[in-house]
């Protein structure tokens, strides 16, 4: 029995290896497309969401409304959003990026808002008493202190974006989703599994990378935290 399992495993394993070997260039190309869409989304989404997060600290009612709307945006199924946007933006990556920007709003706006408003009252009072204007308190105290929290929101958003980008292949955006849809059409399990694993690994790598930057920022802010291996390595390299 053990032998059969081993041989079966080997054959299945070799099927994956073979697939990767045969489609290596294509896989890399699709991965690059995937990363490009993710990057474009982040570049557009983060400035919008951070600005909104800062603006709503001035008005509680606006904060409730904006956070509620951003929450609603996240509940729209991605396929429905693509379908609705194609008539306006055509097929390809544009409607996908538009949808992903919407999806990214909630985590980033929420973390920006929570990070800025969560700064201790004593800190803000000291800043006020020492003669900082509201703007200076924001620039010198609140934003630097909130930065790791904002980055945690970005990290959250990027993981969502990497996942949903795969669906974008359905309307011709490219990316690793192409393999998944192709695999479904051809009933090719190996193709689906390989593409899915690459998407997951990409998400994990990005997650880990941003988490490391987040830790570096926390350390820069004088926080005492348990450091990841990556954080330790970077700190040792810098010193």
């Amino acid at each position: 029995m053990g032998l059969i399992h081993f041989v079966l495993g080997l054959t299945v394993g070799s099927a994956y290896v073979e697939f990767i070997r045969e489609n290596f260039t294509q896989l890399i190309a699709r991965l690059a497309e995937h990363i490009l869409i993710t990057a474009q989304t982040v570049l557009i989404a983060v400035p919008i969401a951070v600005s909104l997060g800062i603006l709503i600290t001035y008005n509680d009612q606006a904060a409730t409304a904006v956070l509620w709307l951003a929450g609603i945006a996240m509940t729209i199924p991605s396929l429905a959003a693509f379908g609705l946007l194609v008539p306006f933006l055509g097929i390809g990556s544009a409607p996908v990026i538009f949808t992903l920007v919407l999806y990214s709003q909630l985590p980033v706006i929420r973390n920006t808002y929570v990070g800025l408003t969560g700064v201790e009252e004593a800190t803000k009072n000291a800043g006020r008493g020492l003669g900082m204007t509201r703007r200076q308190r924001l620039q010198r105290l609140q934003i630097p202190m909130a930065l790791p929290i904002i980055l945690a929101g970005v990290r959250n958003a990027v993981v969502i974006v990497v996942g949903v980008t795969a669906v974008g292949a359905y309307i011709g955006a490219g990316g690793l989703g192409e393999f998944i849809f192709e695999g479904i059409r051809q009933g090719d399990t190996v193709m689906i599994v390989v593409a899915t694993v690459v998407v997951s690994v990409l998400a994990l790598v990005v997650d880990y990378g941003i988490a490391t930057v987040e830790q570096l920022l926390r350390l820069r802010n004088g926080e005492q935290i348990e450091q990841r291996v990556s954080t330790q390595v970077i700190r040792r390299a810098v010193q």
Partner: peptide, 17 residues
């Protein structure tokens, strides 16, 4: 006015970052 007047509070309120 505030920049010309020193201010110390009980909670200390140092900027931790």
């Amino acid at each position: 006015l505030r920049r010309n007047i020193g201010y110390v509070i009980q909670e200390i309120g140092l900027f931790d970052h």
